[in-house]
């Protein structure tokens, strides 16, 4: 464990807790894409299949449970909680995210480190996580403006993978033969997808005006 990875995990945990808290407290999910939340639930479900078979550490297991619990709770709130579901913007959140699932699955079947069930699903979860934010970014552009909690959610979500990139650089230089091209490339693509959001987020913060 290094400071970059710990900071990345904390940032990631805060991003999902910020969103869950917002939805739970104000009973609203305005501006939030349920499709991105569903993609994240699938990412965690397929990445943490080994949660019961291979034990890494208490921290690792605890964080996996936090991510699984929060992502499925957010989807549940947005789909089945009456008050919250009423605030869901169905007309605007129209990204065909099942195509993302299918293409990532096909890609994982083609490009992976080992052709085993767990490894292919793990690789699939990396590809899917890289593009999972797309429905949310499209919804953001359509609804033109964004409340600051959702903005913070996206900012933290983008930031966590950026911190992971620093972690991979650190591990590459400190651990012999620590090379994982698939993880690195997907992590880089994921972070780059947030680039223009970061730009506008920074502008709105600098000019102290509403993000839109």
């Amino acid at each position: 464990m290094n400071i970059f990875r710990l900071a990345g995990d904390m940032t990631h945990m805060f991003s999902v807790l910020v969103l869950l808290l917002k939805i739970h407290t104000i009973k609203s999910c305005a501006g939030v894409s349920v499709k991105t939340q569903e993609l994240y639930a699938i990412v965690f479900a397929t990445r943490y299949l080994d949660i019961f078979t291979s034990f890494v550490s208490i921290y690792n297991t605890f964080m996996k449970l936090v991510f699984l619990g929060s992502s499925f709770s957010i989807v549940w709130y947005m789909r089945y909680h009456k008050a919250v579901h009423r605030t869901y913007d169905r007309e605007q959140d129209t990204f065909r995210h099942w195509f993302l699932v299918l293409s990532c699955l096909l890609l994982a079947l083609l490009i992976h480190e080992k052709f085993t069930f767990l490894e292919v699903l793990w690789t699939f979860s990396l590809y899917l996580e890289a593009v999972a934010i797309l429905p949310q970014l499209v919804l953001l552009q359509r609804t033109r403006n964004i409340d600051n909690l959702t903005g913070q959610y996206i900012f933290l979500l983008g930031g966590y993978r950026g911190l992971y990139i620093l972690n991979w650089i650190y591990r590459y230089f400190t651990e012999p033969h620590f090379v994982h091209w698939i993880t690195w490339i997907t992590g880089l693509v994921q972070t780059l997808l947030y680039a223009d959001f970061f730009y506008y987020y920074f502008l709105s913060w600098k000019n102290n005006k509403k993000l839109n």
Partner: peptide, 10 residues
């Protein structure tokens, strides 16, 4: 073994 090492990240 190598596996556990690679899967130590979230």
């Amino acid at each position: 073994n190598k596996d556990d090492l690679t899967k130590d990240e979230l």
